[in-house]
């Protein structure tokens, strides 16, 4: 079955529900059920946080290494270099989000202009 398989106006919404909403939401529900009996100071939660953090880190890497849309037109070296510069500045200057953003964005656009 495809997005345009049926003419009914509600079909695309059902398609979105089946293909997008449920496969995403089901993991949240499983998470709620699994964490139900784990106590708040359990060591298991350190493992869970480590896995969650590593997953988010892999998403971050994908957004920089294999971006979609406009960012994909920027050279690889510019994207990675700007991200590294921004993160180093963040670590050196009080771990402020604002510093990371400004340095990374300035580096990104400067790199783009120079290439």
């Amino acid at each position: 079955m495809y997005f345009d398989s049926f003419d009914h106006t509600l079909w695309p919404y059902l398609f979105i529900l089946l293909a997008g909403v449920l496969p995403t939401a089901v993991w949240r529900w499983i998470g709620v059920v699994l964490v139900g009996n784990i106590s708040d100071d359990s060591e298991w939660l350190v493992l869970v946080r480590c896995v969650a953090t590593a997953l988010v880190a892999a998403v971050i890497a994908q957004l920089i290494f294999q971006p979609t849309g406009a960012l994909a037109t920027f050279p690889f070296e510019v994207r990675v270099g700007a991200a590294i510069l921004g993160f180093i500045a963040f670590l050196c200057f009080g771990r402020r989000l604002f510093v990371a953003i400004v340095v990374a964005e300035v580096a990104l656009l400067t790199g783009y202009a120079l290439y």
């Binding site: 953090t53 988010v56 991200a83 993160f87 771990r95 989000l97 990371a100 953003i101």
Partner: peptide, 15 residues
């Protein structure tokens, strides 16, 4: 591109 770039930088710094 600059708008897209905000997201990974925010995620990295914030986590």
């Amino acid at each position: 591109a600059a708008l897209y770039f905000l997201t990974p930088i925010y995620f990295a710094a914030s986590s």
